[in-house]
Design a protein around this nucleic acid. Structure first.
Lengths: 170, 170
DNA sequence: TAAGATTGAACTCTCAATCTTA
DNA sequence: TAAGATTGAGAGTTCAATCTTA
């Protein structure tokens, strides 16, 4: 999703990708996600979570609500309301799975795909502008460092002690 | 505040400091601030914003509510409620400034100072454990890269275009 | 019983309007 | 008028309890 406007290797696709992953795990609001938590991005009024949900569904094609919740790092209850809202806006369809009607099959509509693409391009170009202000050395260093940090955080989120803290869910 | 448990240069004070700055600007919830948005840190039940407010006041000694809001990147209205809550918990005192009774003078109580110290130590050691999982090369790279990123984000937050987007305040 | 989804209460935050002191 | 602080409404989130399908 987020690589739509990217050339071959300036800021570096690896770095941009690592930053985006860091954002999804670690960040909901703030400098890297301007303008504002629930404001316009690329001329579309949508919340951060709506934007990331579009990104996940755009990559995965079909997800259940729980799968989407896991990818976004949100509660299933949050995603329930989130998906209902996005369905109302015409961005995704919720069909009960044929084989097992407990599941929803979430997928983007044509309009949802368009919004996802526009948001992805906007985010990428915004980050490219920020990264252009770094020195080449800093950019290379950030790539190595943030890639490592994302790896470490992801393995931390999967660790037993971490799960123990959050075991109220599911 | 956050350097309390730090040795001379392992993870590197510069890197830890850059990470903390990144957190304050960019992050409110997520992997680097475990366990959870409004949960226990160092055995104390406090929200992320309460924790960072303790940190800022611990460094600055006395702040008005607006000054604290600027440092935390929060609305003055949010800080109004935040400070009221922290006063109720006995962590800070709100005295009207002698010369100008429009201002509050916020400062930490003894108990607030203790909580600030414990949280700072907890956060620092949590980050040290994460950073210990990086390779030495990644740690050095992260230091250079994140320091640059923080610099760029800070100058971005001060830029005219950014202010234009947020000019509803003040 | 279990698994997926939903609902209700409470919390943090923003935005806009208002109160208070100067 | 202006500057600091407060209040009210609404959005997004978590947690716990409940509904629904298996």
């Amino acid at each position: 999703l987020y690589k739509a406007t990217l050339g071959s290797d300036e800021p570096s696709a690896v770095l941009q990708d690592a930053l985006h992953r860091l954002l999804r795990q670690v960040v909901r609001t703030g400098g890297l996600l301007e303008p504002h938590p629930a404001h316009q991005h690329a001329g579309i009024e949508l919340s951060i979570s709506e934007a990331f949900a579009l990104g996940e569904l755009s990559e995965a094609d079909i997800l259940s609500q729980q799968e989407l919740a896991a990818r976004l790092g949100l509660e299933k209850s949050t995603v329930s309301r989130l998906a209902a809202g996005m369905e109302a806006r015409g961005w995704l369809s919720r069909r009960r799975a044929p084989g097992n009607r407990r599941f929803y099959e979430l997928s983007l509509t044509k309009q949802g795909q368009q919004v996802a693409r526009r948001f992805g391009e906007d985010l990428t170009s915004r980050h490219a502008r920020l990264l252009a202000l770094l020195t080449p050395q800093e950019r290379r260093a950030l790539e190595v460092g943030v890639t490592g940090l994302v790896r470490v955080i992801e393995s931390h989120l999967d660790s037993p002690e971490h799960r123990a803290v959050h075991e109220t869910d599911g």
